Simulated assay, not measured.
Amino acid sequence: MITAAGNVVMNQEYVQPKTTIVLFSGELDKAIAAFIIANGAAAYDHEVTIFFTFWGLNMLRKDELVRTKKGFLEKAFGWMMPRGPQKLALSKMNFAGLGPQMIKHVMKKHNALSLPQLIELAREQGIKLIACTMTMDLLGLQQAELIDGLEYAGVGAYLGEASQGKVNLFI
């Protein structure tokens, strides 16, 4: 048997390789890299899981404000954190928001997919997007504030995926 990635498997059961990514960073360049790797792994027939924790959860936030009941501290976190992939800063050379605009321009000029397009491609390829429930509780994020189509789980679920992973990354 020959897999989609060109792997030849003879006289044994094919075991689909797994790739897992912990996306801790909420910075645009790191998020783009994570999604390029995830989509590439999926294209090579890997089962892929991205586990979003801490600042990485910000790219899963809906662009629009969602009214929810929260305490003062949870509201404060919501005000301070970027809402969605279009609002993320760069890890270096952010230049008060000018850096992300420059990198988006260069990406468009070179016909590279934007972060929202990479997220959509990941969903189309069946990549599991898991939001860390413990971090959601800590930061006061609610499911209604996040994009549709996510799974919600704690670190145990990620560890279960990672224990079978051929590639495990922390970004």
Results as ranks from 00 to 15, higher is better:
residue 12 Q to A: 14
residue 65 L to A: 14
residue 18 K to Y: 11
residue 49 T to V: 12
residue 168 N to C: 09
residue 150 L to D: 04
residue 144 A to Q: 13
residue 77 F to W: 06
residue 111 N to I: 01
residue 100 P to R: 07
residue 44 Y to C: 14
residue 35 F to N: 05
residue 66 V to G: 10
residue 87 K to N: 15
residue 130 I to E: 10
residue 57 L to T: 03
residue 142 Q to F: 04
residue 160 G to Q: 15
residue 83 R to F: 06
residue 72 F to P: 07
residue 151 E to N: 12
residue 102 M to A: 15
residue 134 M to F: 08
residue 167 V to I: 14
residue 153 A to S: 14
residue 28 L to A: 08
residue 114 S to Q: 11
residue 139 L to N: 08
residue 3 T to E: 10
residue 140 G to R: 01
residue 145 E to C: 03
residue 86 Q to I: 03
residue 32 I to R: 03
residue 90 L to W: 08
residue 154 G to A: 10
residue 37 I to V: 09
residue 95 F to R: 10
residue 23 L to E: 09
residue 58 N to G: 05
residue 13 E to I: 02
residue 103 I to C: 07
residue 45 D to E: 15
residue 10 M to P: 00
residue 89 A to R: 15
residue 74 E to P: 05
residue 57 L to A: 00
residue 6 G to V: 02
residue 141 L to C: 02
residue 131 A to M: 06
residue 52 F to E: 07
residue 86 Q to W: 06
residue 166 K to H: 13
residue 160 G to R: 14
residue 76 A to M: 15
residue 96 A to G: 11
residue 3 T to C: 08
residue 103 I to Y: 02
residue 48 V to M: 08
residue 13 E to N: 12
residue 108 K to I: 01
residue 148 D to T: 01
residue 102 M to L: 15
residue 164 Q to S: 14
residue 161 E to C: 12
residue 159 L to S: 13
residue 73 L to Q: 13
residue 150 L to N: 06
residue 5 A to P: 03
residue 39 N to W: 01
residue 158 Y to L: 13
residue 111 N to V: 02
residue 170 F to V: 07
residue 137 D to K: 15
residue 146 L to R: 03
residue 39 N to A: 05
residue 31 A to Y: 02
residue 133 T to P: 01
residue 86 Q to K: 15
residue 35 F to K: 00
residue 56 G to P: 02
residue 119 I to H: 05
residue 3 T to P: 03
residue 28 L to M: 11
residue 139 L to A: 11
residue 98 L to Q: 11
residue 98 L to R: 12
residue 115 L to G: 04
residue 37 I to A: 15
residue 146 L to H: 07
residue 10 M to H: 12
residue 146 L to P: 01
residue 87 K to E: 15
residue 144 A to L: 04
residue 129 L to N: 07
residue 75 K to V: 02
residue 10 M to D: 12
residue 19 T to W: 04
residue 160 G to W: 09
residue 30 K to E: 14
residue 141 L to R: 02
residue 94 N to W: 04
residue 11 N to Y: 10
residue 114 S to T: 00
residue 25 S to Y: 02
residue 126 G to K: 09
residue 147 I to T: 01
residue 108 K to H: 13
residue 2 I to M: 14
residue 34 A to M: 04
residue 94 N to S: 10
residue 93 M to A: 14
residue 16 Q to K: 11
residue 38 A to H: 07
residue 65 L to I: 12
residue 55 W to Q: 07
residue 162 A to N: 10
residue 110 H to F: 13
residue 119 I to Q: 09
residue 19 T to V: 03
residue 145 E to T: 02
residue 36 I to D: 13
residue 5 A to E: 11
residue 92 K to C: 06
residue 110 H to C: 08
residue 109 K to L: 10
residue 146 L to M: 06
residue 105 H to Y: 14
residue 152 Y to C: 06
residue 163 S to Y: 13
residue 43 A to Y: 07
residue 16 Q to V: 00
residue 136 M to K: 05
residue 73 L to F: 13
residue 18 K to D: 00
residue 72 F to R: 04
residue 83 R to L: 11
residue 160 G to Y: 12
residue 112 A to W: 09
residue 140 G to P: 00
residue 13 E to V: 03
residue 73 L to N: 11
residue 99 G to W: 02
residue 148 D to L: 09
residue 66 V to R: 06
residue 48 V to C: 10
residue 116 P to Q: 02
residue 128 K to R: 15
residue 109 K to D: 11
residue 136 M to S: 05
residue 16 Q to W: 02
residue 39 N to I: 01
residue 51 F to I: 01
residue 130 I to S: 10
residue 126 G to W: 10
residue 50 I to H: 07
